[in-house]
């Protein structure tokens, strides 16, 4: 009986947390294989508030699912990928996190809130 009472509370809390998640689609040039992208994925996962990281090698995009409190900047991402040996180009912030769906091959149409472009060449 107690469990049944707590279930609605759990669902409310969970849905609130998911609603707060945002997704960053980060365009990175030079990543060509799973082994290459691994260190960048690990570096992003270490950032406080980041829940999940995925990638699309064909388009050179890394997807980051994070708390809404996580705010990336061009300077920060440029340095992060520079250290990893790759070239940061731009990022797009989306209001909804869709990594779980896209990791299984779906391509949901998430709305873009902000788009940042960096013309960085090394």
């Amino acid at each position: 009986m107690k469990t049944a009472l707590w279930l609605p509370v759990f669902f409310v809390l969970t849905s609130t947390a998911l609603a707060d998640d945002v997704q960053y689609d980060i365009r990175v040039d030079g990543i060509t294989c799973p082994f290459c992208v691994a260190t960048s994925v690990r570096a992003l996962k270490k950032i406080d508030g980041v829940h999940d990281v995925g990638s699309d090698l064909e388009t050179g995009t890394i997807f980051v699912c994070a708390d809404s409190k996580v705010v990336f900047t061009d300077v920060q991402l440029k340095q992060l990928f520079l250290d990893k040996g790759f070239t940061f180009r731009s990022f797009e912030k989306k209001a909804k996190c869709t990594i779980d769906e896209t990791d299984h091959g779906d391509m949901p149409d998430a709305s873009a809130d902000h788009v940042h472009h960096v013309e960085s060449k090394h």
Partner: peptide
């Protein structure tokens, strides 16, 4: 030491 890097989407 890497002296030249020319990256593009999914290529380098």
């Amino acid at each position: 030491y890497e002296v030249l890097r020319n990256d593009g989407p999914g290529r380098t």
